[in-house]
Write a protein that binds this DNA or RNA. Sequence first.
DNA 1: TATTCAAGTTTAAACGATTAAGCAACTTAT
DNA 2: ATAAGTTGCTTAATCGTTTAAACTTGAATA
Lengths: 344, 344
Amino acid sequence: MKKASLKDIAQQAGVSTALVSYVLNGKEKETRVGEVIAQKIRQIAKELNYQPNHLAKSLRSGKTYTIGLIIADISNPFFANIARVVEDEAKKNGYTVIIGSCDEHAEKSWDLLNVLINRQVDGFIIVSCEGSENQVHYLKERNIPFVLLDRHFPEIQTDFVATNNYKASYDAGVHLIQSGYSKIGIMAYKSNMYHMEERVRGYKHALRDNHIEFHDSWLKEVHFETMDSEVRTAIDEILASEQRVDAMIFATYGLAINALKYINELRLKVPSDLAIVSYGQAEVFDLYYCPITYVQQPLEMLGKTAVEFLLTKLKNPEESMKQILMEAKLIARESSKAKPALTG
Amino acid sequence: MKKASLKDIAQQAGVSTALVSYVLNGKEKETRVGEVIAQKIRQIAKELNYQPNHLAKSLRSGKTYTIGLIIADISNPFFANIARVVEDEAKKNGYTVIIGSCDEHAEKSWDLLNVLINRQVDGFIIVSCEGSENQVHYLKERNIPFVLLDRHFPEIQTDFVATNNYKASYDAGVHLIQSGYSKIGIMAYKSNMYHMEERVRGYKHALRDNHIEFHDSWLKEVHFETMDSEVRTAIDEILASEQRVDAMIFATYGLAINALKYINELRLKVPSDLAIVSYGQAEVFDLYYCPITYVQQPLEMLGKTAVEFLLTKLKNPEESMKQILMEAKLIARESSKAKPALTG
DNA sequence: TATTCAAGTTTAAACGATTAAGCAACTTAT
DNA sequence: ATAAGTTGCTTAATCGTTTAAACTTGAATA
């Protein structure tokens, strides 16, 4: 049994497709469709279980009610969760989401962008990866609506919804200091992405403001692709250095996971051998023998707001630029608990 | 700058849209397009950065090169990963995937199905949830191509790709028995889904074949929606019973996570107080203080094969029914390590 | 009685692509 | 010289919808 079209209904009712369209779109009043025929049309539509063809609608209207969500790394549970939020929120508003992960590769991101543009998505929500500035410029030029999520480029004027990473790292640093740690390292991605730089900057300023001198050996930057091995080397180095750290901040979930695996292998005890604060959030952090202190980003709000921004922009393209930085919350757990005073 | 259409190119080249279409689809030979004009068309297409409109193509051809992936529970990392595999594999074949999670609700699954049908997806890959048999029947009736993934209904003839859950549980049971555990419990979802029944059946047969009498109190079935609280009660009960278990199998990732949290709270030591084998796979299992033994399902293969089945069916709707059960592999870790002999 | 108006309906173009069929203008064969 | 074939291109229908514009009635107004 093939799908019924407007034409099928029109034929059965003995009227033109126009009337059917009017009735089924609730425009019978404005377009003065007779009450009797309207009833009949509705009846037949029901009998044939009519479902409008979205393609045809979209082709005609130029709107697909679809948004493209490009995520830098879907294997990160933080992003996976944010994707869910975006999907749910979009669905509530009658939009469908097509998700793609570029796995931190600008090239893959570019491909995704093109595929989705050809599929005529109405707009984009994007968690940008390094080197994708040109893509953002392209969207601006082409006048395709989009909102950057979680990461943005301060030198490009765009809508965005992100976390105040500077503040989050600053808080994390202060927390560790107040807990009695004074030699604090940080591990981040080697990247010139703004959000990553901010995470490092906040940490450094926390040290500075508490009169702790920062040592270059405390900052470890590793490449995303070769994280597995580089994290190990980095940990080795940071522990072997003269200024051996007693606490570390991990700027991403992936770094923390890899580091924790290695720390376990080394039989280092958290927090006595090494205190830890990490970005990201996941069940692992709860179930680790020593629950991990983490930076809780307002995941739900980030996702919802991004959708909201995009949808208002779709409704009114002239809408002014919207930019928001949301505050993260440090969830203190055992992995950073106060150091027993040495003089105790 | 608006998107260029065939018409725009045709106008610039001073030819009909037909010629442009022929050239850009590589049909210039069959349709005898002049070499000179063909070059010109290609040139202009490039200049205008022509990208074909997928909607129009699809409307005309009846194919969208889109597949709908309906997942029972995307928050389960196993499914999240399988979704990635499906997406990647589909993309390799020029297909786009639209993912939806029904969160184990048949009603939500039905909504998703309809949304995606209206969006004219070419076919479905579905991880069915309880009570969705009618949906499967509906797809069969409507002759919409689909493949069931991971879960299937033995009483309905369909294509499917799934794990041999009976065997997996049997192996898990035997492994625990051989490791010296003799009072083995299992926690599963309260469900009449076949895959869940198989997981329990395999476990029971492992006991039977090893001359261990199964006790009703060893089987705990909890509801998906109220898992958080029910798991705790179930653990309490199973530990308080006369036949207190010394090992447990968790039939899903979610159950294991909830149980482990509670077990931690109770300060029970794994495996000495309680040995554990779980379904699902995730970083948690590696990072737990005592790495968790788990049933490793052939995730990659499952996803790829499902896509493969669906695509061959799309290419040739007359293709015969395809059904596959794949074997899981038990990854033995510390959480189920051999019990020290009492007489040692 | 002629004119205007409203109600109820149809027509046809449009969205952007594909493709069978048709039509000139040549060339070649008979 | 005429028929047949080849080459190179255009026309127009089609997919399923939407919607402005036109059209037909019959009733109300002047």
